[in-house]
């Protein structure tokens, strides 16, 4: 299998960047997208060139470290799939693929495809936790939680903080992330007392960090590798209006 990559190369945060074309051959359809970048980098290193910088860690779709925009879509064309779990069988032999970093003012580019997603941490720091010490993990069923609430909390807690929602949003909003982080606490008993103030302070931090406003376009949900639903945002809005 042979593919042509057009990769965003930018040597540093303030250096100008550009798309550079790289033909890559001898690929197999069962390689992951990150393995494609590994193969490219091996060849660049052997040729004495700088390898393409990109973030990755677990390579099993659960850590949230990887993430590049493939042909305009965060994490590539496959729904509910991180870039590391995307395989080359999703492409056709001979395809040209554009690979870009997450584009957001709040995510400054560190190098090539690596962006600083610290802004997401700062949203969580603004209130995405339970203030009272709750001790170690309680015995199961010590605090009764209705099944529906547990499911909603878990659905939101599946957020791996990769930032694909921001990358996909035409407004550059991190509302899906913020909503997921507020919801997975807000619907559980331990998170109830601070539910409204948490939502309010997290949204205030979100706006201050320079993310755009949500207009419910739904691009975030379509790009989310964990399929977090748009209703999570409705729940956040509900909590904010109660605050």
């Amino acid at each position: 299998m042979k593919l042509t990559l057009k990769v965003w190369r930018q040597p540093g945060p303030d250096a100008p960047g550009r798309l550079v074309g790289y033909p890559v051959d001898d690929l197999t359809p069962d390689m992951s997208f990150l393995e494609l970048l590994d193969v490219l980098n091996q060849r660049l290193i052997l040729a004495g060139e700088d390898p393409v910088a990109f973030d990755h860690d677990c390579r099993e779709g659960i850590c949230g470290a990887c993430g590049v925009v493939v042909n305009g879509r965060p994490h590539g064309p496959q729904r509910a799939t991180t870039a590391c779990q995307l395989h080359l069988r999703a492409f056709r032999d001979g395809d040209t693929i554009t690979v870009e970093p997450w584009r957001a003012g709040a995510f400054p580019i560190v190098r090539d495809l690596v962006v600083d997603r610290g802004a997401l941490d700062r949203i969580v720091q603004a209130g995405g936790y339970v203030t009272a010490p709750t001790g170690s993990a309680p015995d199961a069923h010590a605090v009764p939680v209705p099944k529906a609430d547990a499911d909603t909390a878990f659905e939101a807690a599946a957020c791996i903080g990769c930032g694909a929602c921001v990358a996909a949003c035409p407004n550059g909003s991190a509302m899906l992330f913020t909503a997921a982080k507020a919801t997975h606490l807000g619907v559980l008993p331990q998170g109830q007392p601070e539910r409204a103030t948490r939502a309010e302070s997290m949204l205030a931090a979100h706006d201050e960090l320079g993310f755009g406003g949500c207009t419910n376009t739904g691009e975030c949900t379509a790009a989310c590798p964990k399929g977090i639903p748009l209703t999570t945002i409705a729940r956040l809005n509900h909590d904010i209006l109660r605050a």
Binding site: L19, G72, E100, R103, G212, N216, G218, E219
Partner: peptide
Amino acid sequence: KARPVGYAHRATVQGS
């Protein structure tokens, strides 16, 4: 302001 640099490859609409 939230996206000062746009994408070179613009994807088709996935949402609404």
